[in-house]
C-alpha cells in the first residue's frame, strides 16, 4: 500500500427520520505524498462528506480508509482540516487562535508554538499576532485559519471550499497565498470545491464526481509547473480548454450516468 491516503471501496449512507440516503458509492482513491488534488462535483453530491470521512469525523458505512497505512477510526493527528469559514474564535487573539490545536492536543513543547509564530510572521501576520479576528480582513483571517490547520504539522490537508466565504478579489489572492503556503511547507492537500477554475488553477489532479450517490466519474492529471501560482496559471494557453472539458463532464455528471 503506497500513498499517504488510501480510500478503499468506501460507501456512505445517511439515516434520517424520513429516509435513507446514499451519499457515496464505491469510492476508491489514492493520494500520493506532495500531491495537490481537487475534488469537484455537482452541489450536494457529498463532497464534504468525503472530507469528513477522511478526517475520521464520520465512519463509512462500508469500506476502509488508510492514512500512512493506518486505518482511520477517529480524528487522526496527521490530518489538518480547513473549513469553509475561518471559524476563528472572536475572544482569542490571532496567535491564540493559531495555537488552538496545540492546546487541544496538549502539545506542550515550545518548538511547536515557535513554529506557529514563525508561520504567522512569515506569511504577513507579524503585526497582528495580538490582534483579535474582528480587527483583520477576511483574507488575513483565512490565512490564520490555514496556519492554525498547519499548527500541529499535519501531513495531509483537507480544504473544504476554504475560499467560498470570501469576495472574488480576496478569493483570488488568498488562493495564491494558500497555494504558496501549502507548496512551500510541502504538504499534501485535498481541495473540495464547486469552482472549476479554482480547482484547475491549484491542482496536480482533479477528480470529477457524479451526482449523488457520489462516485468517481473521471480524473485528470495536469503537468503545470508547481512554482507557478494559481492566478498566473489561469493565463496558461491550455487553461480554457481544460476548463471546458471539466465543465462538460460536470454537466454530464449532473444528468446521471
Amino acid at each position: 500500500m503506497d500513498g499517504i491516503l488510501n480510500i478503499k471501496n468506501v460507501s456512505l449512507t445517511y439515516q434520517s427520520d424520513t429516509q435513507e440516503t446514499q451519499a457515496i458509492k464505491n469510492l476508491n482513491l489514492t493520494v500520493n505524498k506532495g500531491e495537490f488534488i481537487s475534488i469537484i462535483g455537482p452541489s450536494g453530491c457529498g463532497k464534504t462528506s468525503i472530507l469528513s470521512l477522511i478526517s475520521g469525523l464520520i465512519k463509512p458505512t462500508n469500506g476502509e480508509i488508510f492514512i500512512n497505512g493506518e486505518k482511520v477510526i477517529k480524528p487522526h493527528k496527521s490530518i489538518g482540516y480547513m473549513l469553509q469559514r475561518d471559524e476563528l474564535f472572536p475572544w482569542r487573539t490571532i496567535e491564540k487562535n493559531a495555537i488552538l490545536p496545540l492546546e487541544i492536543k496538549k502539545v506542550k513543547e515550545n518548538k511547536y508554538k515557535a513554529f506557529v509564530k514563525n508561520l504567522l510572521e512569515k506569511y504577513g501576520l507579524k503585526d497582528f499576532i495580538n490582534s483579535y479576528p474582528s480587527e483583520i480582513s477576511g483574507g488575513m483571517r483565512q490565512r490564520v485559519a490555514l496556519i492554525r490547520t498547519l499548527a500541529s504539522n499535519p501531513d495531509l490537508l483537507l480544504l473544504d471550499e476554504p475560499f467560498s466565504a470570501l469576495d472574488y478579489q480576496t478569493r483570488l489572492s488568498v488562493c495564491d497565498d494558500v497555494y504558496k503556503i501549502i507548496t512551500e511547507e510541502r504538504k499534501t492537500a485535498i481541495l473540495v470545491t464547486h469552482d472549476i477554475s479554482e480547482a484547475l488553477s491549484m491542482s496536480d489532479r482533479v477528480i470529477v464526481l457524479t451526482k449523488r450517490p457520489a462516485t468517481i466519474l473521471n480524473e485528470h492529471i495536469y503537468n503545470y509547473d508547481k512554482k507557478i501560482l494559481p492566478l498566473k496559471r489561469r493565463e496558461d494557453k491550455n487553461f480554457g480548454k481544460e476548463f471546458e472539458i471539466l465543465w462538460s463532464e460536470l454537466n454530464d455528471g449532473k444528468k446521471g450516468y
Binding site: P75, Y81, R85, E87, W91, I104, K105
Partner: peptide
C-alpha cells in the same frame, strides 16, 4: 462548525465545553 473544527483537532467533550461553549 466551530464544534466540528474542535472535533477535527480531536477535542474531548470537556475541551469543547471549556474552550468553546463556555467562552462563546
Amino acid at each position: 462548525n466551530k464544534i466540528k473544527l474542535l472535533k477535527t483537532f480531536g477535542a474531548t467533550k470537556l475541551q469543547t465545553l471549556t474552550k468553546l461553549i463556555l467562552p462563546a
